[in-house]
Amino acid sequence: MSVVTLTVSEDEADIRLDRWFRRHYPHLTQGALQKLCRTGQVRVDGKRAETSTRLAPGQAVRVPPIPDASRPAPPPRKALDERLLREIRGMVIYTDDQVIVLNKPAGLPVQGGPGITHHVDAMLDGLKTHDDDPRPRLVHRIDRDTSGLLLLARTPGVAAKLAAAFRGRDVKKTYWAVVVGRPSPASGVIDQPLARLGVGPGALTVVASRKDEDAAHALSEYEVLDAAGRKLSWLGLSPLTGRTHQLRVHCEALGTPILGDPKYGGDAAHPEGFVDRLHLHARTLDLPHPAGGRLVVSAELPAHMRETFRQLGFSAGATASPRRT
């Protein structure tokens, strides 16, 4: 074993150093890598680096001697059956060599958890073009009960670029919601810090005091797009930060909980005469495409929201086709 120097590829742009090592040396533990960085044995362009250092194409990573893996290889993933292949492929509304965009149905979890075996992440192998391609990666998440756009990357490098765009707020996200009541004023910014109470499936997000040390800054834009008197309204929502359940709690804080919300809003969120499911839909993504320019994609409303729009006389209009600019 000897010291080697590896060059960061274009596909590895903006990837963290620890994730770069995980890709090239999957048997190296995080603790062992931290020790190598702390003692200066790992260097980037000749300089000491932290495990969180983000890499750029062309940089040289000094890799000290690393013992061969002794742990067994993980078992191969079970092939998807035809039903699951049809399900995941039926969600695709845009795809190219670098990204995939899904329209996720309401009620389908993005990832697994206690008692959850059927979820988007378990079906991603069905979106590979070739068997030896990398497994597509989730770039962000939306709630189980929320329908709409979910962005995937075809390679780890593309995933890192897109994750950086989300962190830098270069991605414009628009959600549509039907809420109980009518906000006043008809548009504005909700500036309410949030905090998480509890852990696991029973955890709740709540409005927090600005003095609370656990409070997280949270901003959401809203606009009333149509209303049925003061009974129900159609809102356009844009989260400017990315807190768990942010839009749901911010709508509740406005005094207009989202129709059918099973977790927030209490009895007010469940008026009679409407489908009792969460009426929150990730409608549009406008993001920098990894190959240049921007990609704008919109997702059709789910059936339960279309029915509510019909009942209330709201007109969503035609859904624009995906476009690259």
Results as ranks from 00 to 15, higher is better:
residue 209 S to K: 07
residue 290 P to D: 03
residue 200 G to L: 03
residue 89 R to E: 13
residue 90 G to R: 03
residue 280 L to K: 02
residue 268 A to D: 12
residue 254 L to E: 05
residue 265 G to M: 00
residue 65 P to D: 05
residue 160 A to F: 09
residue 194 L to H: 06
residue 287 L to P: 03
residue 20 W to P: 06
residue 308 T to R: 01
residue 177 A to E: 01
residue 225 L to A: 15
residue 234 W to L: 10
residue 282 A to W: 02
residue 51 T to E: 12
residue 12 E to F: 07
residue 46 G to Y: 03
residue 103 N to C: 09
residue 155 T to S: 08
residue 306 R to K: 14
residue 236 G to V: 04
residue 309 F to W: 12
residue 29 T to N: 08
residue 29 T to Q: 09
residue 97 D to V: 01
residue 28 L to A: 12
residue 5 T to M: 12
residue 191 D to I: 01
residue 267 D to G: 14
residue 22 R to T: 14
residue 245 H to N: 01
residue 319 T to V: 12
residue 31 G to N: 11
residue 67 P to W: 03
residue 215 A to L: 02
residue 84 L to Q: 15
residue 281 H to I: 08
residue 74 P to S: 11
residue 65 P to Y: 00
residue 143 D to R: 04
residue 155 T to G: 05
residue 97 D to G: 13
residue 68 D to F: 09
residue 127 L to N: 09
residue 151 L to F: 07
residue 298 S to R: 09
residue 291 A to V: 04
residue 262 P to E: 00
residue 19 R to C: 09
residue 165 A to K: 13
residue 132 D to C: 13
residue 220 S to A: 06
residue 50 E to N: 11
residue 233 S to N: 03
residue 164 A to F: 02
residue 128 K to N: 05
residue 176 W to I: 02
residue 115 G to E: 04
residue 317 G to N: 04
residue 255 G to S: 03
residue 182 R to S: 06
residue 45 D to Y: 06
residue 245 H to S: 00
residue 300 E to P: 08
residue 173 K to A: 01
residue 87 E to H: 15
residue 160 A to G: 12
residue 60 A to M: 13
residue 115 G to V: 00
residue 55 L to N: 09
residue 115 G to H: 11
residue 206 V to I: 14
residue 229 G to M: 01
residue 176 W to K: 11
residue 4 V to G: 10
residue 149 L to I: 07
residue 194 L to K: 02
residue 158 V to L: 07
residue 315 S to R: 15
